[in-house]
């Protein structure tokens, strides 16, 4: 079903200098003869960047609370010396990440459909379940923001920044040339970030006295830990399969998810 050419096969890759034995030598010679003395950390480079970084305003700010309840909650936290907007920013970040995560697993489902099945890899049910849990987590964060009187449709600065950071992941999984196994590496990156971020969110919620939210977030974290374990397992199986090596004892490939 999938294209017979595999990215791990030897082919006409021309990127290395060894692919051009004659011109490669000329390249080195030309650069050495025609360039100034080598400097590895030019001072002007960092000076210019520091000047910009120290003067630029941030990407944005947190919108004011929507409801009286939100205003009261914000005021109560500020009296305690806390800055509740930091929590709102983190919630905004998680909301954006989980929503995009839903689309990421939808893209992985497409990859699965187009791929040749291999042992130890994900099933459709596996990916659908993770997608649905990402959606659930999105809903959980949305409700949490609403409970705090915040607008869940707003993009907070951290949501914006994580969107930039993870934009490459979606580019990978939506590329028809990228295999399922390659796409799983993008999913691994996402799940690693997601795990740490849910842990951080649960801790902050707890320390701000939002015990119910903290409990919900720890349940979400447990599910994210499961996602991470499964993606790791699928990726290990895929690499073992491609490399023609057998699984090491104790790798513990996760069993297929059952409802």
């Amino acid at each position: 079903m999938s294209n017979p050419t595999k990215p791990t096969e030897t082919g006409p890759n021309r990127t290395g200098i060894a692919a051009s034995p004659i011109d490669g030598k000329a390249m080195v010679e030309g650069a050495q003869k025609g360039s100034p003395a080598a400097v590895f950390e030019p001072p002007g480079l960092s000076t210019l960047r520091i000047r910009y970084s120290s003067k630029m305003p941030p990407v944005g700010t947190i919108p004011p609370p929507l409801s009286l309840k939100g205003v009261a909650s914000t005021a109560a936290q500020m009296i305690k010396g806390n800055k509740p907007t930091v929590f709102l920013d983190l919630l905004g970040e998680r909301l954006a990440f989980e929503r995009t995560g839903t689309r990421l697993y939808e893209a992985l489902l497409v990859k699965l459909e187009a791929a040749d099945p291999h042992p130890g890899g994900p099933t459709r049910e596996d990916l659908e379940r993770i997608r649905d849990e990402e959606l659930e987590h999105f809903g959980l964060v949305k409700r949490s923001l609403e409970a705090l009187g915040a607008d869940p449709t707003a993009v907070t600065p951290s949501a914006d920044v994580i969107g930039v950071a993870s934009s490459g992941l979606l580019k990978v999984v939506s590329d028809p040339r990228v295999t399922l196994n390659e796409a799983l590496k993008a999913a691994l990156t996402a799940e690693l970030v997601d795990n740490d971020s849910w842990l951080m969110l649960a801790d902050v919620a707890e320390r701000l006295g939002q015990e119910d939210m903290a409990a919900d977030f720890r349940r979400a974290l447990a599910e994210e830990e499961d996602h991470l374990a499964r993606v790791r397992s699928w990726l290990n199986s895929a690499i073992e399969g491609e490399a023609g090596i057998s699984a090491r004892a104790g790798d513990g490939h996760a069993p297929s998810l059952s409802p």
Partner: peptide, 8 residues
């Protein structure tokens, strides 16, 4: 594709 809202 991205799970993002154009209205932002």
């Amino acid at each position: 594709l991205y799970g993002m809202d154009a209205n932002n």
